[in-house]
Design a protein around this nucleic acid. Structure first.
Length: 588
RNA sequence: CCGCCCGUAGCACAACCGGAUAGUGCAACGGCCUUCUAAGCCGUAGGUUGCAGGUUCGAGUCCUGCCGGGCGGGCCA
């Protein structure tokens, strides 16, 4: 099994000559340009022959005693230059062109070059943020860079649970990240409304409508036992009308007609899911129905194409896909002995449809329990011989969410009907906290959602820490206007040179990292990077806020400069929270 | 049996194609509100990064083998 994640991602190094456009204007970018000149200088004077293929790293330092930025350039080039790293580092430092953004340079450790940024560089950074406003760190949408993201895609057989919530939070945030980095994003929800599970759903509703309970004889074997089935059955019997995304259905009330029940049940559950998603502030551009693939013969045509391309064979009265030709560990049955298709066939048809809609880039966000479908879907797509790249589509898989309540794990089982719904979570801890909690951790790690903890400490949730910083800035801005109508962030731009305190400079520095963080999070498809960064920004702001009085009538220049810095902070926090789908309140 | 993900402080999680002294929140302990929002700040304590090897200037990160947890693998979806 190959890596499900996308293959083609820009390396995060500075590869000279191919700067990430999102970094434009960041200190990293500026320093890279300077180092490029420096290297050219060394080449000119013969110290180095060439800098072809050099991929040095330029990093923000962890330890302030190492300056603000550091590079391993000398260590990477030492062998090529034929001199010890520290000596080469010294030469590089000496050849660095004059500039106003670096205040101090130092060779350290095995050959790192540490740079301390100047006050002027911070002034530049803050000005740039205020000038860009909510566009800071973002690129305009390029209509030619189309990407489609499929996420949630819950079966319409029950309410959305915590796992779907995680998919919704991560998927939606990925969409926002892609949009912020210039992609034109289409969000899609795939409804498995044609399989065996839907038949079971209809049978379950029918059984409930007939007054049966799961313990009775006559209850369908794989019936859904959740309480919501009772509500659903009652609504059907009462001849309720429901309107889901694209259709309006009135129940016939005829409990002998399974087709009526099925149509009504799917619509009813879609309405529930839509309401949950709306409460979660997640929207889709397209709801794609699996049943449509049968209605328009797309499944049949996909099978025919696979047969025609020669990647199938008949054996034991079944039709097989030679998926082992495409990286699978064995061949897979496409058409069963009794004639029906196995589940991955409509999946292949669906993805062929995506390809034919023109999406050269498609990302599927799913639970890790769907892992095995990746190889099969990709194998099926390869077998079509229509020029689909091997790694297409990309997958982001999130691991399971374990829910703890009363110190014990709550088992998630649709059939048993005992599980925590997304709606429950939102009702308990709020939309912002739920979204943040579910998106703030790497998708690859299993996470534990402790209900009791979330309830008892809802005010301690990290999201409030970040939102509080935002609200504080808004409050200070209001206060400033009370003191003097001229006291606005814009006024402060002229006085940024008065910012000299370490807390001020540290805050200014971290704010200028934002574009890099957005670019990186979008490339890696990892929204939790944003959450961690915001926590960092908020911490810097809170420290600054507590260490210094921001508004002092006796010092108008300094006060407005600080106001500008605070506003820059607010812009970054509001933008970052938006990427996570979390609100940025003006007051708390 | 095979494949994928994970294992980091009491708990939940970070750590940027391998970088310098492994961080953040909660929980614990001690301080800070007559002053811009105390949902905050400052400080203390807490670690053999599951175990054992290997690769190199350098490993939580890469490789091998174990141990432990999760998920998946069937003419089920």
């Amino acid at each position: 099994m190959d890596n499900p994640r996308a293959p083609a991602q820009e390396p995060r190094l500075i590869r000279f000559g191919t700067l990430n456009p999102l970094w434009r204007g960041t200190m990293k970018d500026a320093l890279t340009a300077l180092l490029q000149q420096t290297l050219q200088q060394l080449v000119n004077e013969g110290t180095l022959e060439s800098i072809e293929g050099v991929s040095p790293q330029i990093d923000h330092t962890r330890d302030p005693s190492h300056g603000d930025l550091a590079t391993n350039l000398a260590m990477v080039l030492a062998k090529r230059a034929g001199m010890p790293p520290r000596d080469l580092a010294a030469k590089l430092v000496a050849a660095l062109p004059a500039n106003e953004i670096i205040a101090k340079t130092e060779v350290a450790g095995p050959g790192f070059i540490n740079f301390t940024l100047s006050q002027a560089s911070h002034t530049q950074g803050i000005t740039r943020i205020l000038d860009a406003g909510s566009d800071y760190g973002r690129r305009p949408c390029d209509p030619d860079k189309k990407v489609q993201v499929e996420f949630v895609s819950a079966n319409p057989t029950g309410p959305l649970h915590v796992g779907h919530g995680r998919g919704a939070a991560i998927g939606d945030s990925i969409c926002r990240l892609l949009a912020a980095t210039g992609w034109s994003v289409q969000r899609e929800f795939y409804y498995n409304d044609a399989g065996q599970q839907i038949a079971n759903l209809a049978l379950s509703v029918q059984a409930r409508a007939h007054g049966l309970t799961p313990d009775d004889t006559g209850w369908p074997e794989d019936g859904y036992q959740g309480e919501y089935i009772i509500d659903l059955a009652n609504a059907f019997v009462a001849k309720d009308a429901v309107s889901a995304a694209d259709r309006e259905i009135t129940a016939s009330g005829n409990t002998d007609n399974l087709e009526d029940i099925r149509d009504f049940a799917v619509a009813w559950l879609r309405r529930e899911q839509d309401a949950d998603l709306q409460a979660f502030a997640v929207k889709f551009d397209e709801y794609f129905l699996e049943s449509s693939l049968y209605a328009n013969d797309a499944v049949e045509r996909t099978v025919e194409r696979l047969v025609a391309s020669g990647h199938t064979y008949e054996q034991d009265d079944a039709l097989w896909l030679r998926s082992s030709d495409f990286g699978d560990d064995k061949d897979r049955v496409m058409r069963k002995r009794e004639g029906g298709y196995t589940y991955f066939v409509p999946d292949v048809a669906y993805h062929l449809n995506k390809w034919e809609r023109g999406y050269k880039r498609v990302i599927n966000e799913q639970g890790a329990d769907h892992h095995s479908t990746i190889t099969r879907v990709r194998a099926g797509l390869q077998g079509l011989d229509v020029g689909i790249p091997e790694g297409w589509p990309e997958y982001v898989l999130h691991q399971m969410v374990t829910v703890m309540r009363d110190g014990a794990e709550v088992k998630l089982s649709k059939r048993a009907g005992s599980y925590v719904t997304l709606r429950d979570l939102i009702d308990w801890v709020g939309r912002d906290a739920t979204r943040f909690f579910l998106a703030a951790r790497a998708a690859t790690s299993q996470l534990t959602f402790d209900i009791d903890l979330a309830l008892s400490q809802s005010n301690e949730n990290p999201v409030y820490y970040i939102q509080y910083a935002h609200a504080r800035v808004a409050s200070v801005k209001r206060k400033a206007l009370e003191i003097d109508a001229q006291w606005t962030p814009a006024t402060g731009l002229e006085h940024l040179a008065t910012l000299k305190e370490s807390e001020e400079l540290a805050l200014a520095l971290i704010l200028t990292k934002y574009p890099e963080v957005v670019a990186s999070a979008a490339e890696r498809l990892e929204p939790h990077d944003i959450a961690n960064f915001l926590r960092d920004v908020a911490a810097h702001f809170h420290s600054f806020y507590n260490a210094h009085k921001m508004l002092d009538p006796a010092q108008p220049d300094m006060s407005t400069a600080r106001l500008a810095l605070a506003e820059a902070t607010r812009i970054v926090i509001a933008s970052g929270l938006d990427l996570l789908g979390v609100s940025a309140p003006e007051s708390m």
